[in-house]
Design a protein around this nucleic acid. Structure first.
Length: 820
RNA sequence: GCCGGAGUGGCGGAAUUGGUAGACGCGCCGGACUCAAAAUCCGGUUCCCUUCGGGGAGUGUGGGUUCGAGUCCCACCUCCGGCACCA
């Protein structure tokens, strides 16, 4: 995608030096010398840096480069700062594209995946990252997924894995069910392929993440972006309130959840979700026809229509009555589809005066609207709309005049005393549905026996292997279901005939604990070697995209908490600090996509300019968290920068010692300070700007300082360049005849005392407006500064004939006269 | 509606956290080198006015605090992301 009339021609790139041959040469040397084997020197502080593992789609795209190379730069920086750094990589190798390739082209998913991994591994090496490939994991390897199954069994023992038949989200294109998290947007589309999902009634396996809902809301032990915390908090959706029992004479008690127990006296009707089990039992014969018709219609309606809040509320009366426990009133029971079975208890007490939805419903069906919380300046008149604000309770016998905020707790304890209610918390979060009707995933280690029922596969029989000779139907039907040899088995408990579970696990299970497996990818006695865990856990820095906020990042927190409860780990959170990078867009500032034709192929740029250029360009483009549009011309600025940097070390004996060595020392110290602080805070763009500035300065004084001084300046410069452009830095390091490898050197330190300049530009303002700039000694006193300023012919016109009321002096910066 | 984030030159973006707005880079303009071009190097580049000394305006809009506001406060506008008949 580089422009036809590129300003930097190929010939000119290769004239001075050839990035490709330099890079290839050093990559080979790095491998030979084992430079990136993980440092296990326990005397050093540990740093576990992790970047989200890629899906092996075939080729690295520019998004991978954008995610990985700054992460690598940061890891290199930590290494030079004296940390032992663990920076692993692997492949999230299960998933649908492999299976689709099998269906479309007849290639077995394993073959397809492994070929892709092979290719991507080569590209990762070309990137010049310090990944330690010895710790690589491939999640479709039985050695890996065996432990998915092991976790499943543990979850099952703990009651955290259970099977339930319920209406679930089904993607008709991918032919599988999805977790609630994988259904996105108001149109309820499949997160993977964008197809609108439908509901299907199926028996599926779920992980009980809701048991950890409260703990997942606690972010006090991690430093994660507020944005992610907000997204997860939103997703978990905690509501505090009360559960209240309403008696329906002739049936029994029906429980409701409400966040507004303070409005109980205003409950003038009662609503059940159409799917609520009580509906058919309480409906009186004369309403039966109407109710069943309504329930059927609601069932046929699509989820999207059903959830459309702008639709006019509908409902039918059941003929039954519920008794309001607060005042003993009989209130009519309706069935209405604006009440959802999946939230709370699937039944509500309706308080039209103080809830917009109930208000709309009551207006339509002529139900009484009784104000029980007085709005400001309320005189008993009828409300024109629901009042949801605060106020004193009214029409509430025994609670009159109590501020409703206090009334909530009082009403709850009043109900508790009478055993008709209690304080309760409800979450929007649903349990994690992990069953997938696909082949290319981890088989769920469960057997169904006619005698014994649901039987877990014994631990020692793991892994339950995927059959290799599966047949892939063009319809996308689960190949495991059709595979008799896989399906038919013996019950581990009674040896009788039994059937295997044919669903596989959501691939998000794989990535929920992969950070632990990296530590000992071939360990046989558990998911990871506990001794290695002690040396490296938890992850110190995790980097990746924000799109996983309510999926992967929530699941992995959940897994770690369960692992803690299994005493596998001693901490509560998987990754202490998280950084989300942005998204790299096409040149048209739109999301890259094949259909738009704006996809940037990183390989083209690597071939043309080398990977250091691509690395640096991606870091220079803007703040990492921000992302932004690709610019094929912009990258040429980085080509020039690296070439100029390289030319610093090429030849040229000093001709005259004219440059100020003190200035050089000062600027070098400033460079080190700035790059150090910027890298610490992930500000790669401004660090590179400083490196560019410094390069230009050095080129300006090249040949004008003594050899030792120059050599020393270059040494420091190459050291701080090294994390950004590892190949170029290594080459320059060799050219200035320093011993291999630059990446094993200590990060330079700076002398703060050298940084302050002796001369400063003092800004003179009059009434806050800039009037002059005066060169002055850095430590100039206020009195001297005043004299200098008053002597300025540029300042004089603005103070002549006026009274100087005050002057503000900021040492080393500015002097401001306030004149009247 | 609720929650979160962002608005700065032609463009990507800087600004030591209240102290010279526009660093660095792209693009553009001018110059050097060249037969010429590319590359490279040097200089310029927020806008308006200018008698070429300089002057005025300026960080989404309108107010405010302050000697001084891109930065802090209040109100609003626009855009992006998430959630949403969640009781």
């Amino acid at each position: 995608m580089y422009p036809e009339e590129s300003l930097v021609s190929e010939a000119s790139i290769k004239r001075d030096y050839d990035p490709n041959s330099i890079e290839r040469r050093w990559q080979e040397r790095w491998v030979e010398s084992g430079l990136y084997k993980t440092d296990e020197d326990l005397a050093k502080p540990k740093h576990y840096a992790l970047t989200m593992l890629p899906y092996p789609s075939g080729d690295l795209h520019v998004g991978h480069w954008y995610a990985m190379t700054p992460s690598d730069t940061r890891a290199r920086f930590m290494r030079m700062q004296g940390y032992r750094v663990f920076f692993p990589i692997g492949f999230d190798a299960f998933g649908l594209p492999a299976e689709n390739a099998a269906i479309d082209r007849g290639i077995h998913p394993y073959k397809w995946t492994m070929a892709n991994i092979e290719r991507m591994r080569g590209q990762l090496c070309q990137m010049g990252a310090m990944f330690d490939f010895d710790s690589e994991i491939v999640t479709c390897d039985p050695e890996y997924y065996r432990w998915n199954q092991w976790f499943f069994l543990k979850f099952f023992e703990m009651g955290l894995a259970y099977r339930k038949e319920a209406p679930v989200d089904w993607c008709p294109k991918d032919n599988t069910t999805l977790a609630r998290e994988q259904v996105v947007g108001p149109e309820r589309r499949c997160e993977r392929c964008g197809t609108p999902v439908i509901k299907k009634n199926l028996a599926q396996w779920l992980f009980k993440i809701t048991d950890y809902a409260e703990e997942l809301l606690d972010f006090s032990k991690i430093e994660w972006p507020e944005r992610v915390e907000a997204l997860q908090t939103n997703w978990i959706g905690r509501s505090e309130g009360a559960e209240i029992l309403f008696n329906v004479p002739g049936y029994g008690h029906v429980e409701v959840f409400t966040t507004r127990p303070d409005t109980l006296f205003g409950a003038t009707f009662f609503v059940l979700a159409p799917e609520h089990p009580a509906v058919e039992k309480i409906t009186t014969p004369e309403h039966l026809l109407e109710v069943s018709a309504y329930v059927e219609r609601a069932g046929r309606m699509t989820e999207i229509d059903r959830m459309d809040a702008t639709r006019e509320k509908t409902g039918v009366i059941t003929g039954a009555y519920a008794i309001n426990p607060a005042n003993g009133e009989e209130i009519p029971v309706y069935v209405a589809d604006y009440v959802l079975l999946g939230y709370g208890t699937g039944a509500i007490m309706a308080v039209p005066a103080h809830d917009e939805r109930d208000f709309e419903f009551a207006k339509k069906y002529g139900i009484q609207i009784r104000t029980v919380i007085a709005p400001p300046y309320w005189n008993g008149e009828e409300l024109e709309e629901a009042y949801t604000g605060e106020g004193p309770m009214v029409n509430s016998n025994g609670f009159e005049g109590i501020p409703n905020v206090e009334g909530k707790a009082m009403m709850t304890s009043w109900l508790e005393e009478r055993s008709v209610g209690r304080a309760a918390v409800t979450y929007r979060l649903r349990d994690w549905l992990i069953s997938r009707q696909r082949y290319w995933g981890t088989p769920i280690p469960i057997v169904y026996c006619q005698q014994c029922g649901i039987v877990p596969v014994p631990e020692e029989e793991l892994p339950v292997l995927l059959p290799e000779d599966a047949e892939f139907m063009p319809t996308g039907e689960s190949p495991l279901k059709l595979d008799e040899r896989f399906r038919n088995t013996m019950c581990p408990r009674c040896d009788g005939p039994a059937e295997r579970e044919t669903d596989t696990m959501d691939t998000f299970v794989d990535s929920s604990w992969y950070q632990y497996r990296y530590l000992s990818p071939h360990y046989d006695d558990g998911p990871f070697d506990p001794e290695r865990g002690e040396h490296w856990l938890p992850v110190d820095r995790y980097t990746g995209g924000i799109e996983h906020a309510t999926m992967h990042l929530l699941y992995t927190r959940f897994f770690t908490k369960v692992m803690r409860d299994l005493a596998l780990v001693w901490f509560d959170e998987p990754m202490t600090r998280l950084f989300n990078q942005g998204i790299i867009l096409g040149e048209d500032a739109e999301k890259m996509s094949k259909s738009r034709g704006n996809v940037v192929n990183p390989q083209e740029f690597v071939d043309r300019y080398g990977s250091d250029v691509l690395r640096c360009y991606l870091m220079f483009i803007g703040p990492w968290y921000h992302g932004g549009p690709w610019n094929a011309h912009g990258i040429e600025g980085v080509v020039r920068f690296l070439r100029r940097a390289h030319s610093l070390v090429a030849g040229g004996e000093p001709s005259a010692a004219e440059a100020d060595p003190e200035e050089l020392g000062r600027r070098t110290a400033r460079l080190v300070k700035k790059v150090t602080e910027d890298l610490d805070a992930f500000r790669f763009n401004t660090a590179l700007a400083t490196l560019m500035e410094h390069t230009n300065y050095l080129l300006g004084i090249k040949g004008e300082v003594r050899k030792e001084v120059w050599q020393n300046a270059l040494r420091t410069f190459v050291l701080v360049l090294a994390p950004f452009a590892p190949h170029h830095a290594e080459e320059m390091w060799a050219l200035i005849e320093l011993p291999y490898s630059v990446h094993e050197q200590a990060w330079p330190v700076w002398d703060e005392g050298l940084i302050a300049p002796k001369e400063i530009t003092l800004v003179i303002q009059v009434n806050g407006k800039l009037r002059d700039r005066i060169e002055a000694p850095a430590n100039v006193s206020e009195d001297v500064a005043r004299e200098l300023a008053l002597a300025s012919t540029k300042v004089q016109p603005y103070i002549e004939g006026r009274e100087i009321r005050e002057s503000v002096y900021v040492p080393g910066r500015l002097l401001n006269f306030v004149v009247g």
